[in-house]
Design a binder for these strands. Sequence first.
DNA 1: GACTTGACTAGAC
DNA 2: AGTCTAGCCAAGT
Length: 105
Amino acid sequence: MTFRAAVLELVTRIPRGRVATYGQLAALLGRPRSARIVGQALRSADGAVPWHRVVNAQGRISRRARMTSMMTQRIRLEQEGIVFRRGRVVLGRFRWSAAPRRNGE
DNA sequence: GACTTGACTAGAC
DNA sequence: AGTCTAGCCAAGT
């Protein structure tokens, strides 16, 4: 399985109303230095996963080519009840705490 | 297989 | 608080 596929699967587990950071997801997959690759995976997924629930370590929406997608991300997060302060998600309150898996995988 | 490309990050000013 | 820099590394050419 490619790292990309593992990322997409993991992103799917982020519950509504919570967010995760690129580095956090990378660490959960056992590759703490691969945060950038998480972004790559989301870009290639082209909307097939809840990509909007992933923000950077500062709690801010990362820059990308299409500005519209940045706006879409913020709107979706706020619709899920996530609060922004000074342009950042309040990570202390909304960061997802991954639940450990019980068996296999 | 040798580049290139970033939706990243932590640290240093 | 903003800006830079240097590492980072899977994927695409």
